[in-house]
């Protein structure tokens, strides 16, 4: 047994150096050289200041911006505390929180047509979902248009431009990146 433990110890040391240090450090070097933007977190800069990451959702509360989904990450969209609600389908808390989300959404979006889409009333798995469904974006348009004094048609066109379709036509679901849509929205105003 002692002999086996000795070999095990040596294999451990060598493989930790190889797979635990050299491999990730080399991968980082290559990644930084080939894809620096992605490797560093796909950060988005506005007027020289970093305002967020293209792949990480953010909290939006003002009526003139599109809002993301409910978030269970920390106090909302906290990348250092990712996760979902983990409420089961028969959880009283799930039903109560979904109901209050629906009520709040309908209050804020009195001009919207029909009930809110499912993704807008459910918490994502990560709590930092950067996207909403195109249906949800269109559903929010009347509120945003009203708050900005813009036409619904112009905003519908903007949303349509930001819909990302399924990859290869069948992978995943169509979606709209909320941060990118809101940045485009601010750019619309500035001539």
């Amino acid at each position: 047994m002692i002999r086996h433990l000795g070999t095990a110890l040596r294999v451990t040391v060598v493989s930790v150096i190889f797979f635990g240090l050299i491999y990730p450090l080399a991968m980082t070097g290559v990644a930084e050289a080939l894809f620096p933007r992605q490797a560093n977190g796909s950060l988005i800069t506005v007027k020289g200041k970093v305002v967020g990451s293209a792949i990480i959702g953010q909290l939006w509360t003002k009526p003139q911006y599109f809002h993301g989904r409910p978030s269970a990450a920390g106090k909302g969209y906290d990348p250092t505390a990712t996760g979902g609600t983990n409420f089961g389908p028969t959880s009283k808390k799930l039903i109560a929180s979904t109901k209050s989300t629906i009520d709040a959404l309908e209050r804020q979006n009195s001009r919207a047509s029909g009930p809110p889409p499912m993704d807008l009333v459910t918490s994502s798995g990560s709590g930092i979902d950067p996207d909403i469904s195109p249906e949800s974006a269109y559903w929010e348009v009347p509120r945003v248009a009203n708050a900005r004094g813009m036409s619904v048609a112009a905003l519908n066109a903007l949303v349509a431009k930001h819909v990302q379709g399924r990859i290869f036509g069948f992978l995943g679901e169509p979606r709209v990146n909320v941060l990118e849509l809101n940045l485009a929205l601010d750019n619309l105003k500035a001539p």
Partner: peptide
């Protein structure tokens, strides 16, 4: 991501603080 950065504090357009891991 593939980096060794410390978590980066950013301020969103709406003024909320966020820590990008």
């Amino acid at each position: 991501p593939q980096n060794f950065h410390a978590y980066q504090s950013v301020t969103s357009i709406q003024g909320f603080a966020q820590s990008i891991t």
